[in-house]
């Protein structure tokens, strides 16, 4: 095992162990996601007979809002208990800090999705098929890469700002709109009766391209976040 992979493992385990002990972030994210879904239902679900065409949009708008909450929350111990100062003094590459943070956000998102996706299909989809879950799982994984990488970069900047809780959603959500569009499109393409596979594949490919572009941007800029 190389030094980098040992460091990555230690950083990721630090985040996950902290979460297992406090159980603050993941549970709050799940509860928030469920409440957000219900808000969508009360907002416009009653006005349509079949909510299946809306399910993809409801799922991904919910997940995007939940991701903003989770990414912001994941930096709280770093700030309040000065963990970040210790990490920055340690001989660890800054980009490794980004990768480890993105990995822990990715895990939080998977936890939320494991609960949210079945709930959305139960609440909003008529006659869901078993294969739909596998196809949506692929969308989740592809979307999580982009969300967690870009979220970790923007949250690292927001944590040093004055209006941090307010700033992160304002910075993150507009940049996340392409993910919402593509993920909702891919989910919509395979949910319900008809499966539009070429459309689905196009959207999943777009999500991967989004993740690669922001991984490159984050790689090029993350060092500069902690220059002082």
């Amino acid at each position: 095992m190389t030094a980098a992979s040992r460091q990555f493992r230690a950083l990721l385990l630090k985040d996950l162990r902290l979460e297992l002990r406090t159980r603050q972030t993941a549970i709050a994210m799940v509860l928030f996601a469920v409440v957000a879904m219900m808000a969508f239902q009360f907002g416009f679900g009653f006005r349509v007979d079949d909510t299946t065409p809306l399910a993809g949009g409801i799922l991904w708008a919910t997940l995007a809002l939940t991701a903003v909450l989770g990414v912001g929350r994941s930096f709280v111990p770093e700030r309040e208990q000065r963990v970040l100062d210790g990490l920055l003094l340690a001989p660890v590459s800054r980009n490794l800090l980004l990768v480890a943070r993105a990995a822990s956000v990715f895990v939080y998102l998977v936890v939320v999705e494991v609960i949210t996706v079945p709930l959305v299909t139960v609440f909003f989809v008529q006659d869901p098929a078993a294969t739909d879950f596998a196809l949506i799982a692929v969308v989740c994984v592809a979307a999580n890469f982009g969300i967690s990488i870009l979220g970790s970069l923007l949250a690292a900047m927001a944590v040093f700002s004055r209006a941090r809780e307010l700033l992160l959603p304002v910075l993150f959500l507009p940049a996340l709109l392409p993910v919402i569009i593509a993920s909702a499109g891919a989910t919509h393409a395979v949910l319900g009766v008809s499966n539009d596979m070429p459309e689905y594949q196009g959207y999943v490919l777009f999500l991967l391209v989004y993740a690669v572009i922001f991984a490159l941007v984050a790689y090029a800029t993350y060092d500069h976040v902690f220059d002082d």
């Binding site: 923007l154 040093f160 922001f214 800029t221 976040v225 220059d227």
Partner: peptide, 14 residues
């Protein structure tokens, strides 16, 4: 200035 520069890169990519 630093954060603004980083965000101008992120925004242009999106």
């Amino acid at each position: 200035a630093r954060y603004s520069a980083i965000f101008s890169v992120v925004a242009f990519a999106s």
